[in-house]
Amino acid sequence: MRAVKRLNFAVLALVVLFVAAVLGSRLDDEQEAVPAAGQTSSAGAGRAAPAFSLEDNNGHVYSVGGPREKALIVNFWASWCGPCQEEAPDLNAMALKYKNVLDVYGVNVTSQDYKPNAERFVRKYMLAFPVMYDLKGDVFDQYQGQVFPTNVLIDKNGVITEVVLGTLTAEELENKIIALTGS
């Protein structure tokens, strides 16, 4: 009887260790998949930006895909995102400063947000660039979005030059804009 109890205990201990090892491995994989703030992702860099059209609250449709007159930053954000709140004033200032050579499109990933909160965010930060609402998250998915904010830098030829995950300092953002626009 004692031998059976020891055997049961040993089997149970092995099962627990196995489960712990599997869960630990999965957590390590997930941590590797979540990038650090301000990290650049090579996902999509060098490829044509996926085409999309989205509407703002005034019914104006904005499109991405193919060559354009100006370079473009597509900023994916959510109103509850602290880093998005930190980034908004700097992004707004850069959009105004570089408006002759750069378009900035704000894309609220409304599938992961609440639209009235997103609209309040736009008013609070007095965003000077167009803001569209990705109601189903389809565009964010097209761009393989992972974190908020995600900034996709697209050159005049419609090619993604860089994907920035998380926030940047104002200086880092401006340096990337200068490199993108040649200004």
Rank of each mutant, 00 (worst) to 15 (best):
F121G: 07
A95V: 09
Q146H: 14
G166A: 11
P116N: 11
E174V: 05
L168S: 10
A118D: 03
P130L: 07
V101A: 02
G182W: 04
L165Q: 12
V164K: 10
D138V: 09
Y98Q: 02
L153S: 07
N157D: 04
G145S: 10
Y133R: 07
V109R: 07
N100E: 09
E162A: 12
L153N: 01
G158V: 00
Q144G: 12
L135Q: 14
D103F: 00
D138K: 07
V139W: 05
T161W: 00
E119Q: 15
N175Y: 08
V159H: 01
K156R: 02
A179G: 08
F129G: 04
A118P: 04
I178V: 15
E174N: 06
V152R: 06
A93H: 07
V104N: 04
L127W: 03
L135A: 13
T110K: 13
Y114N: 06
I178N: 08
T167P: 09
M126F: 08
G166I: 06
N151I: 02
K176G: 04
V164Q: 14
D138N: 14
Q146F: 13
E162T: 09
L180H: 01
L180W: 01
P116A: 11
N117M: 12
G182Y: 02
D155A: 02
L135F: 12
T110F: 08
Y143V: 06
I160F: 05
E171C: 10
N100D: 09
Y114F: 14
F129H: 08
Y125Q: 06
V104K: 06
V164T: 13
V159Y: 01
Y133G: 05
S111A: 15
T169S: 15
K176Q: 08
V104D: 02
N157Y: 00
L102S: 00
T181N: 00
L135M: 13
V139M: 06
D134Q: 07
G158E: 00
L180C: 01
F140P: 02
D113H: 07
L127F: 03
S111E: 11
K99W: 02
S111M: 13
Y133I: 04
Y143N: 05
V107Q: 11
D113Q: 10
V139P: 02
L180M: 01
K176N: 05
E119D: 15
D138T: 13
A170C: 13
T169W: 06
T110W: 12
Q112F: 15
G106R: 10
A170L: 11
I178G: 04
L173S: 11
L102D: 00
Q112N: 13
I160N: 03
